[in-house]
Design a protein around this nucleic acid. Structure first.
Lengths: 248, 248
DNA sequence: CGGTGCCTTGATTTTCATCAACACCTGTGG
DNA sequence: CCACAGGTGTTGATGAAAATCAAGGCACCG
């Protein structure tokens, strides 16, 4: 947990106290900035808390702001014309998101919801060009982030197209564990945000039922442990073998 | 077909004659450039012909050049660790591709092969930063292209995750027809580059056999017509209904 | 303590991959 | 000119994977 002054629940309030520069110093997009520059950037930022399950921005709406995730996890959704929703990706703390302005878009291409309680900074989109012009490292890192997400999407497509459900679910668990995971006693990794079977189904293009069966089987076999809405990978090595079986 | 001097088959030769400025004037990334600027850019470009099926660049290799597709269609592939290959997307004439430098990557994330005979310009990657710095419209359009591809990838993922094979194949045909299609007599659209059933299977995460069955059925029903390696959509409207059935 | 959201398990059905066998087109080299 | 080989496309039979349907249990919250 970051040290942070919580603001009143649900309000779109800026924090009253000045944000501390140390919040940003370690983060990739700001690594090349001086303390004074970070101060300037912070003074332009709005800070806000989003309760679990709330929507930060919705697909198709004007991209008025771009965001930096300080704490928590963001789930990016996309809704098909038929109304089914699928989870496109998860964003871990420290990354920029909602960066439509970077790709010349004026509306958000996806919906961002808080997978856990979330704290995020945001800036008006018109500042994007200022930021990239003034701080070269910022634009570069933003591009890197986009490149990385492109790579993830390619990998997801390859997964969906070639692997079976069992492998996809295992891979999804491993990815969540790797991204937002806490070590537990005994070499296991606990996923840091709440996940339901339905969520996993939405990630893997599967169903609630199938995911439930797989998790039950894996729990029997000692690969995972799950409580209501929480999953821990107790044997990452063996689960990895399920996700991508050795070619032999 | 563009008016163009063909170079000797298979050689990595630059064309001897100067390239004409009109080649680029209509294309999005160059639209804001003056004739003199386009001249300067062209003089730095290498032009080359790639025979059908040849590889322009391969995934994982150093991204030494970036490309502009003048004529033909590029198929972007990705190979899974298990060795299966899937078609990630198609790129139509007029677009930039291999733009790893734009996202701060030093190796190509995917493999580009010529789906039909292809003519492309290319520049060394180190010129990327020059181009974007000197010609603001160029960088912006490149970002737009990336944004658009992100959108396509999202859509592909949603498709793979929620639709059945029949709908995916229909959607793939529609997309190819829309992107690189020639009107035929009678309201039909012919896909402009050679496609095999296996190609379509690789796009949709399906199999040769299933695709063959679907195409046979659609041909019976008068939705498509196919010769060896060539497919025409004869009834786009009805095929669209197969791709995304009305919610009712 | 009742209700809602989350999870489980079994039975049944659908979809689609897999396997097998063959027909066809196209270019090549005798 | 013909034979043939390799890439391409078809079709049927079979089986496995996973969705769907049905019914109920369990945790958490007011």
């Amino acid at each position: 947990m970051l040290c942070f002054d919580k603001v009143g629940a649900g309000g779109a309030l800026k924090v009253l106290k000045r944000l501390d520069e140390s919040l940003l110093t370690g983060l990739a997009p700001f690594r090349q900035m001086s303390r004074a520059e970070i101060r300037a950037v912070l003074d332009l930022a709005a800070s806000r808390r989003y309760p679990e399950g709330s929507t930060v921005f919705a697909a198709g709406f004007p991209a008025e702001r771009f965001y930096l995730l300080l704490d928590g996890t963001i789930r990016v959704l996309r809704t098909t014309p038929e109304g089914e929703q699928i989870v496109v990706l998860h964003i871990p703390a420290g990354q920029l998101f909602g960066i439509a302005p970077a790709i010349g878009a004026t509306t958000y291409p996806g919906t961002a919801v808080a997978a856990s309680e979330v704290i995020a900074l945001s800036w008006p989109s018109r500042l994007w060009s200022d930021f990239t012009a003034r701080y070269p490292g910022f634009g570069l890192q933003a591009m890197r982030t986009i490149g990385q997400r492109l790579g993830e999407l390619h990998a997801r497509i390859a997964d969906l197209a070639t692997r079976q459900v069992e492998q996809r679910v295992a891979a999804a668990l491993m990815q969540m564990a790797a991204q937002g995971g806490r070590r537990t006693t005994g070499g296991g990794i606990e996923i840091a945000f709440p996940v339901t079977r339905q969520n996993i189904a939405d990630m893997t293009g599967s169903t609630l039922f199938t995911v439930s069966r797989l998790l039950s089987a894996w729990e029997q076999a000692g690969l995972v442990a799950s409580r209501r809405r929480h999953i821990a990978v107790t044997d990452p090595h063996r689960l990895m073998l399920v996700a991508s079986p050795p070619p032999a």
